[in-house]
Amino acid sequence: MLLPTDLGLPSRPAFKGEINGHELALFELMVRLRLFERRAYDLFLQGLVKGTSHLSLGQEAVAAGFARAMEPTDLTFATYRGHAHTLARGVPMSAVMGELMGRATGLMAGKGGSMHLTSVEHGMMGSYAIVGAHLPVAVGAAWAARSRGTKQVVVCFFGDGTTNIGAFHEALSLASVWRVPVVFVCENNLYMEYTAISAVTPVRHPLADRASAYGLSATMVDGNDVAEVFDVARRSLAECREGGGPVLIEALTYRQSGHSRTDPGTYRPKEEVEAWLARDPLACYADYLVSSGFSRAELDEIEAKATAEVDGAVEAARSAPPPEISLVETNLWADGSASWRS
């Protein structure tokens, strides 16, 4: 069991980061992610979303804080736990919901599904379902950015469990040798699937404690503190844009739901869950906003708008047709076909 205090975190996020002018935008983004994920879960239970799905409930501050700090041309690489990162880059809810529900209107017309959300036009370069696989890919995208002089920064999100796979090591090592503009963000939610990360990891801080092995240093952030995340994200992105990088960030957070939709998460001690729920990134942030002069009413209004947006996305997906069967044999190759012979 790891209580927030064991990790040196305050019992509630401090919200000391510099977010001047972004207060409500960050709130709105987090609310949208929260409500979308909740609805996605309801739809699984109703059998309308099939397959598997991995929610970011409780981890919204990381997605929101980074996305808000990124330029539209910056690139995101995420994991199968990628709904929030996709939405945070501005992808419409209806396209994401359509994909989760396997509709023609889905982001990839149903060919990717929950674990592979991608929207190049929003800089969302993919959600990857093989643990660690996207870290080297992010390094390559960052290398291309530097080599072409695009000023893009690549942000690559992954879990604590990912730090134990070989691709992580290869990617950090190459990124450091090539000095490419990538921010690696470890969302340390204390669990890899059903096993506490501490039980299977030789160091306490899965990313930060390994940074020196790659000639890098890492910054720890309270991943439930959207102000701190946003502040650190802005500084990290700026550092990379000015020719620095790679940058390592370990964000301490907690997933409030199970690993995937079939997981009730019963392996987690009650006391631990409660301590983390008490530092819910959204509720705590709302309180902070009210205490610093924003009104409950304006927050409620934002929330009502987000609810309507989710309702609309679900309605749109429900009424959309399924994908054309002919899609099965398309888009394997750049000519649009799947043909392998003359």
């Binding site: 080297p136 890919v137 992010a138 995208a141 290398w143 291309a144 691709a167 290869e170 090539w178």
Partner: peptide, 25 residues
């Protein structure tokens, strides 16, 4: 800048090539 030695890291080599291909190289 166009011919680069890599560490002995085949996953990184292919992954980096993929990422670079996605981003204009």
């Amino acid at each position: 800048s166009r011919v680069l030695d890599t560490p002995i890291a085949e996953q990184a080599i292919i992954g980096a090539a993929l990422g670079a291909a996605m981003n204009g190289l």
